[in-house]
């Protein structure tokens, strides 16, 4: 199963500030009553974007100047809470291709990586720099270079970090493990045979 090598992601960015943005905030539980992920994008951040009557609240994603942004900026512990893939899926379906935050909740990070959405970490000051540049010029192109682990924007750049196993997977086109896992079939059978509780 050959996957695309994700060496870098470029696009316009939008900052959704805040720490501990949890998966229920990213996609409220009531929108998870579905048997497929299609259509989740429109409910991204729904309860902080919309009033009860469906009209818009003030939220960066409601600002027209940020329409079409593909890079999401945020704070610390992004994606905490649930293991449900609905959250990364909603982010992906909305159109985001990468996330820059101070750090990420573990399961969320892994889920994003498996979907080919790089999550990179940067210091708060550096994220603020990107956010300020984007706020001043929403058309600014932001590029995340996964090989150099650098984000460049309007002549500036910041350093980012990413767990090596994730980075390796993305840049080498093996961010979704399924192909490799299937290839290990014989070794899997050998391990299973050594585990008494697995025997049928």
């Amino acid at each position: 199963m050959a996957l695309q090598k994700i060496l870098s992601v470029s696009g316009r960015a939008v900052c959704v500030p805040g720490n501990d943005i949890d998966t229920d905030r990213i996609i409220p539980a009531r929108f998870m009553k579905c048997v497929s992920f299609d259509g989740l994008g429109e409910f991204l951040f729904y309860d902080v974007r919309k009033n009860l009557d469906g009209t818009n609240q003030q939220h960066p994603l409601n600002e027209e100047r940020f329409n079409g942004a593909t890079v999401l900026l945020s704070g610390a512990n992004f994606g905490c809470g649930s293991s449900r893939e609905h959250a990364p899926q909603a982010i992906a379906k909305y159109g985001f291709k990468a996330i820059i935050a101070e750090n990420f909740a573990e399961i969320f990070f892994g889920n994003c990586t498996t979907l080919g959405i790089p999550c990179v970490s940067a210091s708060r000051e550096d994220i603020a720099k990107v956010a300020a540049a984007v706020a001043a010029n929403p058309q600014l192109e932001v590029t995340i270079d996964l090989q150099a682990l650098e984000v460049s924007f309007g002549g500036q750049s910041i350093k980012v970090t990413q767990r090596e196993s994730a980075r390796d997977g993305l840049v080498n086109g093996r961010w979704d493990a399924i192909g490799e896992l299937i290839e290990g079939k014989t070794a899997v059978a050998a391990t299973a045979a050594k585990l008494p509780y697995v025997a049928a």
Binding site: F37, T114, L115, I178, I182, G184
Partner: peptide, 11 residues
């Protein structure tokens, strides 16, 4: 996550 549920089901 769901992709891993798929992985566990399949392998």
């Amino acid at each position: 996550g769901t992709s891993q549920v798929r992985d566990v089901l399949a392998t």
